[in-house]
Design a protein around this nucleic acid. Sequence first.
DNA 1: GTGTTAACTTAACGACGTTAAGTAAATTAT
DNA 2: ATAATTTACTTAACGTCGTTAAGTTAACAC
Lengths: 210, 210
Amino acid sequence: MPPKPKTEAERQQLRTLIIDAARDLFVTRGVEAVTMREIAKRIGYSATSIYLHFADKEAVLRAILDVDMLALATSLNTILQIEDPVERMQALGYGYADFALSFPNHYRLMFMAERIPCDPEKSSLQKNNAEQDAYFLLKTVVNDVYLAGRFKEELQDVDLIAQVIWAGVHGICSLEINMANDKWVNWTDISARLQLMQTVLIRGLLREPT
Amino acid sequence: MPPKPKTEAERQQLRTLIIDAARDLFVTRGVEAVTMREIAKRIGYSATSIYLHFADKEAVLRAILDVDMLALATSLNTILQIEDPVERMQALGYGYADFALSFPNHYRLMFMAERIPCDPEKSSLQKNNAEQDAYFLLKTVVNDVYLAGRFKEELQDVDLIAQVIWAGVHGICSLEINMANDKWVNWTDISARLQLMQTVLIRGLLREPT
DNA sequence: GTGTTAACTTAACGACGTTAAGTAAATTAT
DNA sequence: ATAATTTACTTAACGTCGTTAAGTTAACAC
């Protein structure tokens, strides 16, 4: 039964309601497995109502990713309090992995599922803002280590270093999330794997006197 | 129009025909985007005929992965000719990455997509056979480096070492496959990233006198 | 020559994402 | 005050999907 016109705040509230319901379902059962009808049922509306607020299913997903990227960046921001730049860089890796392994379906949505490239133009997040952009945070932290002269001298590209560190930690996390149940491989303890990766990254990137 | 009973060989031939058609479509357009009707059309049968040879769409996918895992392992086997164990280990990493980046949709299917855990019991492939099991090949190659006494002395678990190397290379490949189109990140050259990862792995894992 | 069986086909089902068409309350215009 | 419009929804419906059920027809068995 259609009531009165809604204020902008009310519309935003409903948007958030949809996003939260959809995320809850996406995260526990996977994006493909969840239907629009299901999301709608959760919040007590008909399926077609979602289309009044989002263009399509993909737009809902995109909105979720936006919100969650912000959550990731925000949660990682606490590590900025650590003073030593190398320690800080390590802590960032552990914080990132902790997020990935604590919320694997979240992480899958964000970094492992076939992705809609996220366009800075269309995102509500601010790029190059450490509080909203986890990659920028990583780059900042890596840059501090660089400025402290701790990297091997031939390493001059902060983006390159940041991306290799990201890849290392992402590799550990994504293999764990996707393949841990695979009997084919004799998996070692995940924390041992993560720790060795961090050690290898540090030893491979920093100058000798650790 | 339905002809005579088929020999086992003929049935196997048709199975292969389906697998090849399905792979071709899956790899270029993604699993979800390809329909059973489409696969069938490719080989000149009706969609329902596929169900005479495979239980469902997932079974087709599983069969493809089985064949392709074998193909990957076989293609990587050539690096066994390299004599120096460390060089061999590096070459394996490059070979693996070359496969991943040359056939990204293949790779996505095999190591990135939400996976049906593949059960050694049900697979036609032999586990612990270097010609059929890429992980075993990696482990063998890593073990040779271990036996040559080239790893740092505290590294005593060959599975752990192998899994960290895999994670490193997989991290580079999977980020490239999934995120390279993402404008958010200022991506550096993929070959530079791969090379630095390999260097970092070597430097982080091997004893000092490289 | 009349079943029986194997290898197919077409029809059909229920569910999906999405669009079109309808409905009723609140607002605005007269 | 009431008629017209707009807003926020709903139900119906479309085309497509994976899959199942129900034919159909050629080859074989007796």
